[in-house]
Amino acid sequence: MWLTSSSVGRKLIMSISGLFLILFLAFHMSMNLVAIISSEAYNAVCSFLGSNWYAVAGTAVLAAGVFVHFAYAIILTLQNRKARGEQRYAVSENQGSVEWASQNMFVLGAIVIIGLCIHLSQFWAHMMLPELVGSEELLLTADGTTYAATDGAGLISYTFKNPINVVLYVIWLIALWFHLTHGMWSAMQTLGANNKTWMPRWKCISNIFATVVCAGFIAVVFYGYFA
């Protein structure tokens, strides 16, 4: 199958899975912004995306997307290291126009995955998971407060009261920002939807999109911290 057996095919898989994750990010970020406006509204959105079939299906597709993207990131990176060969240059200078992010996509992606794990253990494990397994388990925190699985807004303010979490999330989101500034135009280039005119446009769109998404997420983090 050409998608997996050719270099351009493998890149196409990276690009489509990446663009899919981008769509999800945009959606997730808009949803989070609701938490700033109103806790009730946010919890309503959360319950809407609870343990019903479409949310579960969405989660499964999303997990598959992350898995495919991650798996191909590993495959591509290993193949590329091999293609580069054993001998490295003794002296190597940056070529000026080369973006730092483009050379470090795997590291940035790895940070994103670690952040994702932390994030899932802090939120998903206390919100969607209990509903899925049918337990009404409540999160009991060190200070004795309890949060119901349906109280997403409460969980946000609880989590981000802790400055360590704030720092972790900000690092995570900055890595995501770098990954997106390169990833988004790179995905268009891989799809073939690029040329000399669109190159600067895609770069501009990527920068704006990455900034809006990451700023949106970070806003919620700080909202949780200060509110």
């Binding site: 270099s7 493998r10 890149k11 591509l76 193949q79 590329n80 091999k82 293609a83 580069r84 070529q95 000026g96 126009s97 080369v98 973006e99 483009s102 050379q103 996509m105 390169h182 135009w185 790179s186 280039q189 891989t190 073939g192 939807a193 690029n194 040329n195 000399k196 190159m199």
Partner: peptide, 23 residues
């Protein structure tokens, strides 16, 4: 290897061949 669009090639190409060709 698989191209990840770093653009190092374009920056070093003595004939300034553009990566729009890669697209």
């Amino acid at each position: 290897g698989n191209c990840t669009n770093t653009r190092a090639c374009e920056a070093e190409c003595p004939k300034a061949v553009s990566i729009s060709n890669i697209a």
